[in-house]
């Protein structure tokens, strides 16, 4: 289990890095945390001809959380930094709740949020979190920069909206809406494993307690992370009581299209989507502040 040979670049600047990527396109892979890429390379499931190592570059590890709660997370921000950032803990509680479920401490010391999202593993937790939060993702290339809504970013299995010359340079999380609450829940065989099912829920309530908006997003629920619009709609415009929870759960079971694995059949994954929807929405409602 040793990687096949590759060319290894340590670019002198972000511009240099983007130029290299523009020149080599899909033949080149970005190396950020490497915690998904290196295992695949050791198993020779991935054989990139060229690696462009972002780690030596400065300026990509910016992590800022504004007073209102808007978070900007650069390409080299590692999970470790997210876990320990006071602003994230205070304002981006859904992300803070999800990150400790990603692998183990050693992996989180190296792995990056942007790398995870660009890898677009359908079993990962974080794409679902991005959908629930309504994140925007910044793509950069020598052609310039553009912002992509999370909803449009995850296209298919290991496939994103990034062009071959683009880098996922940053993620922006909007400020949590007022009178909103969130919850992240997953069921995994062991802590740190990919979830058999994961759900990220954000609920907004009117002062009278009725639901004004709901975003429910699921990991390991299909070729890419997905929302459950019908389940969300079933919650909006009413008080979230037991009947609403059950209705949303039933709709969520239908919304997911889980692939099944050696650990869970699609039927069990659907069942878990329903259970977790009920629990996560109830928790999110209880957390509304």
């Amino acid at each position: 289990m040793k990687p096949a040979p590759f060319d290894y670049w340590t670019p002198e600047s972000l511009e240099h890095a983007l130029a290299l990527k523009a020149e080599h396109g899909d033949a080149a892979r970005w190396l950020a945390g490497g915690q998904s890429l290196l295992p695949a390379m050791n198993l020779r499931l991935a054989r990139p001809g060229i690696l462009i190592d972002l780690n030596p570059l400065s300026g990509l590890d910016g992590l800022t959380v504004g007073d209102a709660g808007v978070a900007r997370i650069g390409a080299l921000v590692r999970y470790r930094a997210l876990e320990r950032d006071a602003g994230i803990a205070r304002h981006q509680t859904l992300l803070a709740e999800a990150v400790p479920h990603v692998a183990h401490p050693q992996i989180r010391n190296r792995g990056t949020l942007c790398g995870n999202l660009a890898h677009a593993d359908p079993a990962s937790e974080l794409p679902a979190v991005m959908l629930a939060l309504g994140a925007r993702l910044q793509a950069r290339s020598i052609r310039g920069e553009r912002w992509i809504d999370a909803q449009d970013f995850f296209v298919d299995l290991f496939t994103t909206a990034l062009a071959p010359d683009e880098l996922l340079a940053a993620v922006e999380l909007p400020a949590p809406p007022p009178r909103s609450g969130g919850a992240f829940l997953e069921v995994a065989r062991r802590r740190g494993d990919y979830a058999m099912m994961a759900v990220a829920a954000v609920i907004e309530l009117a002062p009278d307690g009725s639901c004004t908006a709901a975003r429910l997003a699921y990991g390991n629920a299909g070729p890419s992370a997905r929302r459950a619009p019908a389940a969300e709609q079933a919650l909006v415009g009413r008080r979230i009581d037991d009947a609403a929870l059950r209705e949303a759960a039933a709709l969520a079971e239908r919304a997911v299209d889980p692939p099944g694995s050696v650990h869970a059949s699609p039927a069990f994954q659907r069942h878990l989507a329903g259970v977790l929807t009920r629990r996560a929405v109830a928790t999110a409602v209880a957390r509304v502040s």
Partner: peptide
């Protein structure tokens, strides 16, 4: 990753 040896949490 898929053959699950118990960890300290199991």
């Amino acid at each position: 990753a898929d053959y699950l040896l118990p960890t300290a949490l199991e």
